[in-house]
Simulated assay, not measured.
Amino acid sequence: MGFEGSTLVDWDAFGQARSELGAGFVRILGYFREDGVKSVAAIEQAMRAESAAAMVIPAHTLKGEARQFGAEPLGALAETIEAIARDCVELQDTPEVALEHIVKLRPLFSETLTLLEREANPLVARKPQGGGFGRKTAHY
């Protein structure tokens, strides 16, 4: 994907979600993983079946859940797919125009989820913020 880790997630929004969800944060992130895997698969299946109507709900779900965790590029891509699907339903058209976006969806979801889960894992080593027990502080 063309994104770097720093642009895939709005870490301020992620931190706010973590703060608001408290002890349930990791569990809810797990639901995002499960729902996201299902949504991406459903969108891909709908594309293979040329069913715009079958894309709308999974794209809408993925959009909202991604944005809850600050994953704006993923949310925006899901929103684009949802809008295309809704237009195709209204026009009674097939969703070929969504294909170029759907091709990007799985890799973006995977990369984003990896970043979110890495940041949420309490066992991940954090960069030391200077000093601390057992660490030398720089003296100039």
Rank of each mutant, 00 (worst) to 15 (best):
F69D: 00
E65G: 12
W11V: 02
A17G: 03
C88M: 08
S39H: 10
P107C: 09
I57F: 08
G30V: 01
H60M: 10
A42D: 15
A71M: 07
S6N: 13
E72N: 13
L77T: 02
E82N: 04
C88E: 12
M1W: 06
E79T: 08
A76G: 11
E50K: 12
V56L: 11
A85V: 01
K136I: 04
G24Y: 05
S39V: 00
L123E: 15
Y31A: 11
K38W: 02
R48G: 10
E20T: 09
V40M: 08
V103L: 14
G15H: 10
K38F: 04
D87T: 11
L105S: 10
L74I: 03
E20L: 15
G5T: 07
Y140W: 10
A54S: 14
A54L: 13
A78H: 00
A13R: 12
Q68V: 14
L77E: 01
P122A: 11
K136S: 11
F25W: 06
M1C: 11
L74T: 00
L21M: 15
M55H: 05
E100S: 12
A71N: 03
T112Y: 02
G75E: 02
E100C: 04
E79Y: 11
S110W: 00
L99H: 10
V56P: 02
E34M: 09
G15C: 07
L74A: 01
E82V: 00
A59F: 04
I43N: 00
V26N: 09
V89C: 15
Q45S: 15
I28K: 10
P107K: 07
T7Q: 15
R18A: 15
L115S: 11
S19W: 04
A125I: 07
E96P: 03
R67F: 03
M47K: 09
V40G: 01
I81P: 07
F14A: 04
K63S: 03
L8S: 01
A85H: 06
G132V: 06
W11Y: 11
S19G: 06
D10I: 01
L115A: 14
F133L: 13
Q16A: 12
T112G: 06
A98S: 13
L21K: 08
L115Y: 04
V40S: 05
L91K: 15
E79F: 08
E79L: 14
G131P: 05
S19N: 08
V97D: 07
G2S: 13
G70M: 07
